[in-house]
Amino acid sequence: MDVPNREIIGRYLRHAKRFPHIWCPGCGNGIVLGCLLRAIDALGWNKDDVVLVSGIGCSSRAPVYVDFNTLHTAHGRALAFATGIQMVRPKLHVVVIMGDGDAVGIGGNHFIHACRRNIDMTAVVINNFIYGMTGGQQSPTTPQGALSSTSVYGTLDQPFDIAGLAASAGATFSARSTTYHVKELEKLLKAAFRHKGFSVVEAIAACPTTYGRRNRQGGAVDMMKWQKKVAVSAKRAAGMTPEELHGRIVTGVLVDRDAPEYTEEYDRIRRAAAEGKRVAFRSQPGDVTSTRAKEY
């Protein structure tokens, strides 16, 4: 009954063309890509209908290895490219794979605006707390006090909570897991892909080469053990105090709600425009106060 993992992954790789890959031993990117492929396989998506879009960085090299429509864009801009694709061909499954610097550093503006538009696509953000490809500079998610090649006395800046940022910016599905919790990560990706609207899955991953070594986190295995140790499910976290949650990574689904999907809503605009009419909306021009904070 169970198909071997190797066989599932093998269905989707661009064989003999793009290997060996560029990722270091112990890198979490391959684990996330594996989860992504198994989730797509489980949903039975046709390869021709999948577009995998990325920006720049280690994780953004993922698309070249897999046999979908693949687009390796510029640093931070993957979501904006993906928006154009999804608007023109809403039936395609657009999945955007980014790193932490890509998604919420240089691409932060695109990230929050993609969240508020609620276009039916999925952003997979691999968060390894560091700019790996350029050799270990502080990123927007580097924990305060952590060392990097550009924060040699400790990182001063407060880190972003990516999945939380997505939720508060209006993403209708936001979840987080780690590369230790492969089964959960795969499940969350599947749920995100199934979700109608903009979904975000943050995957905490290890970069032993540029983050672990400098911060004395041990090797790849030790960093995975750390993920296991600090992870706490959203359900359990709900009953914990901020003090208890300090230094923990909340995993699971943070937000899952229904809201009108952008490309479908845009079709309403097209139909009305063709008839020269205005479109009816639930809210009115005077409804400027956001109620989203309460929902979240």
């Binding site: 879009v53 864009t73 510029a74 801009r77 490219f81 928006t83 154009g84 694709i85 023109v88």
Partner: peptide
């Protein structure tokens, strides 16, 4: 970026 994505989609 959106224009380039749209063009790639035809």
């Amino acid at each position: 970026a959106a224009c380039l994505g749209a063009s790639l989609a035809g």
